[in-house]
Design a protein around this nucleic acid. Structure first.
Lengths: 211, 211
DNA sequence: GTCTATAGGGGGATAGAC
DNA sequence: GTCTATCCCCCTATAGAC
């Protein structure tokens, strides 16, 4: 097998091919993307791909590992920092939206294919990363409650799911380079998450000012 | 082709087969589910399926249409009702979580396959339903702002996306019959959405009570 | 590093017997 | 309503030439 280890050289052909594959995987799904699709997009024939990679699986594997190593490194930095709980939570949200901005394909692949790929031994690390992600958010939320920054009656597990879902699913509609930048979205999202959208808790029918 | 119209009789074989197919489509994805998978699960051979349906596409088509007709009927009832804006918004959220409870497979299929299926002419109605859903939520949000129930500075478009995403993506982890019932989840979710998770807007580091 | 050629398997769908 | 048998296409991956 000629597939060599990624050797940090001049953004190699290997890297180019991975980027092309990632785009297709995110757009059409892993199974629904054929090696011929990838080869076509790269301007070569399908057989030639196997000079660079062992298999289609190897491609998605390398894409996901590279992305996750970077993302979880950022989470770790936040957790190890000495900011207050609310700030840490805000930073984690910001970092996540920034990841969607910089690596939309990778995020989409992880979102859409994790459950399918996770069934293979080779991709067992996906479940580990998932647990690690949960641990990060639960830590942030528990710290926030303990220090009084978040409501004491919070269902932390449920809140974690809502945050996780809302943040990552944004990859479905966020467009890098569009009108809304990732940091604006993060701020707006945090405003809703932290303070809600209502004018007051269980507001009365409102003193009929409009209509 | 023998595929007859659904004739409302005793939960027919046809209906059974659709339920089996829906379960597989939601679990493994549409493309990743073979007609042989469906036939196996039904205890028959793949060729026999074509006595009931024209094609695999026809199956997913019927599943989605049936579900969406029901769901949007409920949305319409809410919109046409005379409740106040906040109550309408709450009901729409409740109805959506109830739909996840009663039709988890259908919701999952719509969530995961809409973008793929939508590319075919036959499934053009998926895009229409999507636009209809957006119209429902935007109406609810705009009414809420106009009547003073929701913050005047709300980014309605962005809020719509967050609501939509968080509600439907719950199908990924919600388990009918589990500890958390759909109405409890809806209430908890509305608590976060309407009032936020923070103790106070931009709370100070908190009078260090714990640690 | 890419091409030609092809092996080997699985997919959707059909025709006709029972 | 189901089964047997099968067609034809597309998929991943390989072997060896250039």
């Amino acid at each position: 097998m000629s597939a060599a280890a990624p050797s940090s050289e001049p953004a190699s052909r290997r890297t180019e091919l991975l980027a092309i594959a990632a785009g297709l995987f995110s757009q059409k799904g892993f199974r629904n993307t054929t090696v011929r699709d990838i080869a076509d997009a790269a301007g070569i024939l399908s057989g030639s791909l196997y000079h660079h990679f062992d298999s289609k699986e190897s491609m998605v594997d390398e894409v996901l590992r590279t992305f996750q190593d970077e993302l979880f490194g950022q989470y770790d930095d936040i957790l190890l920092g000495d900011a207050d709980p609310r700030t840490k939570l805000e930073r984690a949200v910001e970092v996540s939206f920034a990841a969607i901005d910089r690596h939309p394909h990778e995020v989409a692949i992880f979102q859409n294919e994790a459950s399918y790929l996770g069934a293979f031994e080779r991709f067992g690390y996906l479940a580990e990363r998932n647990a690690q992600s949960r641990a990060v958010w639960l830590t942030l939320l528990h710290d926030g409650v303990r220090e009084g920054a978040l409501r004491a009656d919070l269902d932390v597990e449920l809140t974690y799911r809502f945050i996780r879902d809302t943040v990552w699913v944004a990859v479905g509609w966020y467009r890098p380079g569009g009108k809304l930048t990732h940091d604006v979205i993060a701020r707006q999202y945090l405003a809703i998450l932290l303070d809600g959208i209502a004018t007051s808790p269980a507001a009365p029918p409102a003193p009929t000012k409009g209509r």
